[in-house]
């Protein structure tokens, strides 16, 4: 492992260790926070018992669905808007201010319309993630060098081959930035929606455990979410790094 890697690991170990210490020796009330070791044990037991499997499947299913819709639809919408410069100009201010508005405030409205089901949660997830994907698509398409179209014609490539073989790979790292953001935003939006108001799901279970003072269950599931989110983002980050190295993107 690199030096930086060791330092990173040390930071994590020290932080977790300090929390463990503080909880074990009463600096932090156990009724408020349980020690990380107990969180891990609780999570292990919960997973082994299979009690939470349904909730886990439901929540991650919704997250994957929302992200997939946001990425595919966001890309398609981005392509269309990119082809229509006037429309793009008209929409620009909306995109620029989109994330300044807490989209969340529309969640209750959606629940009122679609009922307390999966639909409003997916919609909030998509709505939160999709604009990042649209903007990344526009950026990616802007960055395709114009000379590539000429190269394509020298090789007598058709429109489809040009798009798939040259334009898509040229734009890929920028599109990937959109995917990364969509994953983070989708994740947050779905969990938060469940937390506020949902018939089931991890967010709801955590919220219920909180009301019931069921600390082991609450912290176990929080730990699970943290682990999954961190893992997914690490994988995406590793891809990003590889691209950055190969293509010199982000290098001064």
């Amino acid at each position: 492992m690199s030096r930086v890697g060791w330092i990173r690991l040390a930071v994590i170990v020290i932080a977790v260790g300090a929390l463990e210490f503080a909880c074990q020796f009463g600096f932090i009330n156990r009724k408020v926070v349980i020690p990380p070791s107990e969180m891990a044990v609780a999570l292990g037991k919960l997973l082994a018992s299979g009690q939470a499997n349904g909730e886990i499947a439901r929540t991650f299913g919704i997250i994957v669905l929302a992200i997939a819709i946001a990425v595919v639809l966001g890309f398609a919408i981005g392509v269309v808007i990119h082809a229509l410069p006037r429309l793009r100009q008209a929409l620009d201010p909306f995109f620029a201010t989109y994330y300044a508005v807490p989209i969340f405030i529309f969640y209750p409205v959606m629940v009122a319309i679609f009922g307390l089901s999966v639909i409003p949660i997916v919609l909030i997830g998509v709505a939160t993630a999709i604009v990042a994907m649209i903007m990344a698509t526009l950026n990616g398409l802007d960055r395709i060098p114009r000379v590539l179209s000429k190269v394509a014609r020298v090789h007598r490539m058709g429109a489809v081959a040009t798009a798939l073989r040259l334009k898509l790979p040229a734009a890929a790292p920028y599109l990937f930035t959109g995917v990364k953001l969509a994953v983070s935003y989708g994740f947050i939006a779905v969990i938060a929606s469940e937390f506020i108001l949902a018939p089931a799901g991890l967010g709801r279970v955590i919220s219920d455990a909180y009301s019931d003072f069921n600390n082991p269950r609450m912290y176990a599931l929080m730990l699970l979410l943290i682990i999954v989110a961190t893992f997914v983002n690490m994988v995406l980050h590793a891809f990003d790094q590889r691209w950055a190295e190969r293509r010199g993107i982000g290098r001064p």
Binding site: K150, V154, P169, R246, R247
Partner: peptide
């Protein structure tokens, strides 16, 4: 065969 003025290498 054409070699263009701009850099047209494929970075990927």
């Amino acid at each position: 065969g054409v070699v263009f003025q701009e850099d047209a290498s494929f970075p990927w």
